[in-house]
């Protein structure tokens, strides 16, 4: 546990120094710029659009960080040979993997926390411009919570691929899974589209196996202040946690068997 913590802090330190947090500047600029522009462009819906944009931006910036750092987490250490000296220390291979994961998770959490704070600051400003619009709605945090979970799942996928494949391929596979994960409902209903029962069964199988990213997306519901049952949140969180555990277990197993030629 202690060793995992040290590895994680090291990942966090390195990503911060690698200017990963610069995305926050882009995020703030985007949100503030958009708040200014949208008032000129549209009638009445400024607050809704800023909420949509803010949540989508948090999810997107987080996704880019999760993928582009995640794919290099293990691969770079092997490629740059820093792993050689590290693994000769009293650190087990699974501790290395879990530490790397925890480090990126920490980076993402800090990032999302700052983005969310900036988001609420912009909303608080909008609330002064549009009184009674309910701009500062704590219900949006439900969407942020599921975004965090989604990012942790994406990180686990990227890390898993990173244990055996090149960054380019890992990025393609991770993004691919993320996109497919939003078409999940279509896989479920595939038999309505195709004639072949075999293809329909395959699609149904994929529906159960592939990560269902669509489930983590409650941005629209949060912005519209619609009720989201607590049971849904719990079930989705549980799904995410189990899926992450599966991927990390897979990554640990692949990594434990690897030869570092």
């Amino acid at each position: 546990m202690r060793v995992i913590g040290h590895v994680a802090v090291n990942v966090f330190k390195e990503s911060v120094r690698d200017r990963v947090l610069y995305n926050l500047v882009a995020f703030a600029a985007l949100l503030i710029g958009a708040s200014y522009l949208i008032g000129q462009l549209t009638a009445g819906q400024d607050v809704k659009i800023i909420k949509d944009l803010g949540l989508a931006a948090i999810a997107t910036f987080g996704l880019l960080i999760a993928v582009f750092i995640g794919i290099g987490l293990v691969w770079n250490e092997v490629e740059r040979r820093s792993i050689y000296s590290l693994l000769s220390k009293p650190i087990r291979r699974y501790e290395f993997i879990l530490g790397k994961y925890a480090g990126l998770a920490l980076t993402l959490l800090v990032n999302v926390a700052i983005m969310t704070a900036a988001f609420y600051a912009v909303l608080a400003y909008l609330a002064t411009q549009f009184p009674g619009s309910g701009a500062v709605d704590p219900g949006l945090l439900r969407a942020v919570a599921l975004i965090v979970l989604e990012l942790l799942l994406v990180t686990a996928i990227a890390l898993f691929f990173s244990t055996f494949s090149s960054p380019f391929l890992s990025a393609a596979l991770t993004f691919g899974l993320w996109v497919i994960g939003h078409f999940n409902a279509d896989l479920r209903n595939f038999e309505a589209v195709v004639q072949s029962p075999a293809a329909a069964r395959l699609a149904r199988g994929l529906y159960y196996v592939l990560p269902n990213f669509a489930a983590f997306d409650i941005k629209t519901q949060a912005v519209q202040a619609l009720p989201v049952p607590g049971s849904y949140l719990v079930a989705t969180a549980l799904y995410g946690v189990v899926y992450i555990a599966l991927l990390l277990a897979g990554a640990v197993m692949v990594f434990a068997r690897r030869d570092f030629k």
């Binding site: 040290h6 330190k13 390195e14 740059r80 040979r81 050689y84 000296s85 590290l86 000769s88 650190i91």
Partner: peptide, 23 residues
């Protein structure tokens, strides 16, 4: 290791402290 290489964004001091922490 042969031709060792470590973390770009750590200082030499920090690297050794990190290793010490692992021990």
């Amino acid at each position: 290791p042969e031709n060792p290489s470590f973390y770009d964004y750590l200082t030499a001091e920090e690297l050794l402290e990190y290793v010490g922490a692992l021990f």
